[in-house]
């Protein structure tokens, strides 16, 4: 039990350090960006017609006149107290903006996460079990092609096929345009294409990794022995069991890639999620929002890896029993 506590404490310290590092990096990058918040958000023409007092007021609002260190420290101070500040672009508390955006993105991310995991595992098993034969070559060929395809380009391709040519799926947004309260079905319909884009890219990666693992397992002594004993259902009994561990790790590690991919994909599909908000915050010099999104997504990714670590302990008897014996 104390082993578990120690493990958790170590992870929490690591998470705190990670979030600190990530927020500082994001801040420094943003600070180094050549974008002038006033010019981007107010416009050159409007600035020209303003009085110096008005400009000074705006500079104060966008924080352009405060030294960088002071700005970061004051952000950090209030963030530690749970206040992530107010978004400069949306003029609402950052947490509220993130909450709303995240609930939209969650449809997409959940959809992609489940699809890419299931598809990747299935294709990986298929390829690994048929090593060297045509299903393997087909799956590997497709996966390598997809892996070297940028996600946004794939998104455009899907848009052209399903929304423009076939006209069976909406072209963008999270809900029908001007449609009031959206039903669950409508939300799913809108999340399908961006979700599919994300899934296909994610699945390729997972399938390739799973395939390698399946090949390793099939080459192992215990599979040889199982065959020598005339066991049936070797794939289900031994391969699946031994591939489950790396599959779980991959699945939870893929959360990071999904969130990263969603930034581009949401842009392509005008999907008003967290990724799109991150882009607007970055381009619009909305420091509080950008830092908020960075910290929240970093925490999500970290949470994913942590879950994988914990599940590993629960699934693998060597870790489970080993820890209990200590």
């Amino acid at each position: 039990m104390s082993h578990r506590l120690q493990f958790t404490a170590k992870k929490l310290v690591r998470m705190a350090l990670l979030l600190l590092g990530v927020s500082l990096t994001a801040f420094l990058l943003m600070n180094a960006s050549p974008l002038d918040p006033l010019q981007t958000n107010v416009g050159q023409a409007a600035l020209g017609s303003m009085s110096p007092e008005q400009i000074a007021k705006l500079e104060e609002y966008w924080g352009a006149d405060t030294p960088a260190a002071e700005r970061y420290l004051s952000w950090l101070g209030s963030a530690l107290r749970g206040d992530l500040g107010v978004s400069l672009l949306y003029r609402r508390p950052v947490l509220e903006v993130i909450g709303q955006r995240l609930s939209t993105s969650l449809w997409l991310l959940a959809c992609a996460w489940v699809l890419s995991g299931a598809l990747g595992l299935g294709l990986g098993l298929l390829a690994g079990a048929n090593r060297g034969r045509w299903p393997d070559r087909l799956v590997r060929g497709c996966c390598l092609t997809v892996s070297s395809t940028p996600a946004f380009w794939l998104g455009l391709l899907l848009l052209i096929v399903f929304a423009v040519w076939l006209k069976i799926l909406p072209i963008g947004m999270a809900v029908p345009i001007g449609g009031g309260q959206a039903t669950l079905l409508e939300r799913l319909r809108h999340a399908l294409l961006p979700g599919l884009t994300l899934s296909i890219t994610g699945a390729a990666n997972i399938a390739l990794h799973t395939r390698e693992k399946v090949v390793d397992v099939l080459d192992s002594d215990y599979i040889l022995f199982a065959r020598a004993r005339g066991e049936r259902h070797i794939l289900r009994r031994h391969v699946l069991r031994n591939v489950a561990l790396p599959a779980v790790t991959l699945q939870f590690a893929s959360i990071g890639e999904l969130i990263g991919g969603s930034v581009l994909v949401e842009q392509v599909f005008s999907y008003p999620g967290l990724g799109q908000a991150a882009v607007s915050a970055g381009l619009g010099s909305d420091m509080p929002l950008l830092l908020g999104i960075t910290v929240v997504t970093a925490a999500l990714v970290f949470g994913g890896s942590l879950t994988a670590d914990l599940l590993y302990g629960a699934i693998d008897p060597r870790i489970r029993k080993g820890a209990a014996a200590q």
């Binding site: 002594d221 022995f225 020598a228 004993r229 005339g230 031994h238 069991r241 008897p317």
Partner: peptide, 24 residues
């Protein structure tokens, strides 16, 4: 051989690596 394996003909392998590490 496929019919006889594990029934009439049995293999005793070298060591513990021939057992599935994830199964009781």
């Amino acid at each position: 051989a496929e019919v006889l394996r594990g029934r009439e003909v049995a293999l005793i392998p070298q060591g513990v690596t021939f057992l599935d590490p994830m199964m009781k």
